[in-house]
């Protein structure tokens, strides 16, 4: 009898210890996984997709095409994080850029940081590349519009319950004359209930 109890305790201990070990499972990048309720990749992708869709269906783009006879060229400026979380706005910017480029409706130029690296390379080509392959300075495509924005949050907390309200605002500004040609807004509301008990 005593031996049986000891074996049972031993087996239970093994099961308990197995439950504590780290497990890793590959999941699809598009799968929606919410762990803490904080801003995550799903929010970033969703907001970028919806807002760019909204931006590209607005009047400014047809007006520009009528006037200029070509697709507008856009550059992404800064997206300020004014939220309660340390959000990496770079991934959000990348998501928006991908949505815009893949739409084929607009042309896109590199950001200020990327441009300086390309200019450096062009300078290097000036000295080292053959005449036939060298890309000369001064042929850059100037952007017509700049996309700027900010992420804001309002948090309401009561005990273990929390409501997180995210508001993403984007503006498309004409570089020529500072006109704001499009304003977009996307809201996400999350209700988070933290567990009362833990292991």
């Amino acid at each position: 009898m005593k031996v049986k109890i000891n074996i049972s305790i031993f087996l239970l201990s093994i099961i308990f210890l197995t439950a504590c070990s780290t497990t890793v499972k590959r999941i699809d990048a598009s799968d929606q996984v919410d762990l803490s309720g904080a801003w995550n990749d799903t929010d970033s992708q969703l907001v970028a997709k919806n807002m760019i869709k909204d931006a590209l269906s607005a009047n400014w783009i047809t007006n520009f095409r009528k006037k200029a006879g070509k697709n507008p060229t856009v550059i992404i400026g800064t997206v300020k994080n004014l939220s309660h979380e340390h959000i990496n706005t770079n991934t959000f910017v990348e998501n928006m850029q991908r949505e815009m480029i893949n739409s084929g409706e607009v042309q896109f130029v590199a950001s200020a940081g990327q441009r300086s690296q390309i200019r450096e390379e062009r300078g290097d080509q000036d000295i080292n590349a053959t005449e036939a392959t060298r890309k000369k300075m001064g042929d850059e495509l100037g952007a017509d519009y700049m996309l700027q924005g900010q992420i804001n949050t309002i948090i309401d907390v009561e005990g273990r319950k929390q409501v997180r309200y995210y508001q993403v605002n984007l503006k498309l500004i004409s570089i020529k004359d500072n006109r704001i040609v499009w304003v977009g807004e996307k809201k996400i509301k999350k209700y988070i209930k933290n567990s009362t008990l833990r292991e």
Binding site: R160, N194, S195, T196, L197, R198, E199
Partner: peptide
């Protein structure tokens, strides 16, 4: 933050 929940053990 994780430890704000109660542990029975």
């Amino acid at each position: 933050a994780a430890l704000q929940a109660i542990s029975i053990s």
